[in-house]
Amino acid sequence: MSLLSLALALALAQSPTPCRSGERWVLLPFQPVALTTAEARQVEDAVRRAAEHTSGVCLEPRAETVAKVRARGGRLPGCVDAACRGAQAQALGAQRLVRGVALGVGGGRSVALTLVDREGLESHAVVTLSGEGLPPGQEEARAREAFQELRKTHLSSAGAVKRPGSAWPTVLLAAGGVALAAGVGFGLAARNTEAVLSQGNAGCSGEGETFRSCFTGRLREGQRQARTANVLMGAGALLGAGGAVFFVWELP
């Protein structure tokens, strides 16, 4: 293998696997608490399988994630604010980052999941996988439930945060209103011109060429006003409809 092909292979190996569809999610190796590393890995694998089978989620392969974590010293520092969390997600090339703590307390197993987006907004879900009062053999299903609950919580809270920030419906409706008002103004002016023209002399004095020229000018002015009014009212209606569509789109 030539040096060039080796370098190319290494570069390809280090570049993240592209996502053909869906958002790029990164699931970090789970932290064990009162469990062994191997037991925490079992819990992590169950959640990973749930993520892989969720539509719209493009999960980064574990090997890539592990390589990134290793390159950062084997563990990502705990963040206390949204800026740090968002920066961590971005540094790992994730649109959404999932952290997990696998717990073996009280005679059962639980998992605490945290989902972070690029803005640092985080959501949490805790699910008991096994233990007293729970039917055995349901760990996989419960891990799936934990992941779905986490995703649902995050999407609803992220939507709630982003909604108030959107100004598009207001802008479109306001612009539509202004255009409609201007259209009505031009329409009234065209109507006035029409009334003047219907008087017979259209307010023009003189005879022959002078009168014809004045009359034609008044006629053209009226036509221009009518056209402008139509264009403005059409634009206003479109803008208003657009604003309404955005408004309905962003309703919870």
Binding site: Q31, V33, A34, P77, G78, C79, V80, V101, L103, G104, V105, G106, G107, S110, A112, T114, V126, E132
Partner: peptide, 18 residues
């Protein structure tokens, strides 16, 4: 031993809280 069966609830204070 927190792994033992017990009539307890558990509060997780993860990394990041200090």
């Amino acid at each position: 031993d927190m792994g033992d069966k017990a009539r307890l609830g558990f509060l997780l204070l993860p990394a990041g809280l200090e």
